[in-house]
């Protein structure tokens, strides 16, 4: 064999090897999932993840709920007590009221009340005395109040009961027996707040209207109310 033929054979072998290597590499690229498997095992380079996942422009706005502060400006409750009609007849008094606290001192209130001997006579039987007068009485009114003297009752080392003495007055309409009157009221009360959502109220109010002179009707009531 000559040296030329030997060189030709060597080149042919080299070409065959190069072609076989290229063919095997191209076959690797056709292998399904090879790239993904390789990427899963490989540690991502800084910034690679961001480039691999482009930002979706159709993102939905995340639901970021801003927590709201609960307000407690309204006071709703009921009351019971006695009413003395023109210093003569006494009866039980029941009512409901709703108030709106405009500021820490000022509030407005609406109320509805009616007289009844139910419960009142039973109490009088226990305590002694005469029965109540069976008088038809209904009233509703609007009032404005002002917290005059606040204070704190120290019950224990870590527990205090705030209270306030308030003044209240307003106007309304009263139906006494079969007569309707425009009524005016003026009074004062003591409100105790054992919790920040509960109020206990003791109130003395003069409910007055004009009928053959001014009739003064005193109301003594005890009430419970919740703040909302």
């Amino acid at each position: 064999m000559t040296s030329q033929s030997t060189a030709l054979i060597r080149r042919a072998r080299q070409s065959a090897m190069i072609l076989s290597v290229l063919a095997s590499l191209s076959a690797c690229s056709l292998w399904p999932g090879y790239e993904n498997d390789k990427r899963d095992n490989a540690r991502p380079l800084p910034g690679e993840e961001a480039q691999a996942q482009p930002v979706d422009p159709n993102l939905e706005r995340p639901d970021v709920g801003i927590k709201q502060i609960k307000s407690q400006d309204y006071e709703v409750g009921g009351y019971a007590g006695i009413i003395v009609f023109d210093r003569n007849h006494t009866s039980g008094l029941y009512g409901v009221r709703a108030a709106y606290h405009k500021s820490e001192n000022f509030f407005v209130e609406g109320n509805y009340a009616f007289a009844s001997t139910v419960g009142y006579n039973q109490a009088r039987n226990l305590l002694g005395g005469s029965d109540g007068a069976d008088i038809k009485y209904k009233s509703f009114g609007f009032s404005a109040g002002y917290n005059l003297i606040p204070g704190d009752l120290y019950v224990s080392r870590g527990y205090t009961v705030p209270f306030v003495i308030y003044g209240i007055g307003g106007f309304g309409f009263a139906k006494f027996e079969d007569d309707s009157h425009t009524s005016y009221s003026l009074g004062a009360g003591l409100k105790m707040m054992p919790t920040d959502w509960l109020a206990i109220r003791f109130e003395l109010r003069d409910q007055a209207w004009s009928a053959y002179g001014i009739d003064h009707n005193a109301e003594f009531t005890f009430g419970l109310a919740g703040y909302f």
Binding site: I69, K70, S71, Q72, D73, H101, K102, S103, E104, N105, N147, P150, D152, T160, P162, V164, M193, D196, Y227
Partner: peptide, 30 residues
């Protein structure tokens, strides 16, 4: 102790402290 400046001050919360706002009544926050 209650929502009015005339009620006693029983404590303070200092600068940087996190506080939870429980409720509001008129112009006061618990």
């Amino acid at each position: 102790t209650a929502p009015d400046e005339r009620y006693p001050i029983h404590d303070i919360a200092e600068h940087g402290q996190q506080v939870s706002v429980i409720k509001r009544r008129a112009r006061w926050y618990k």
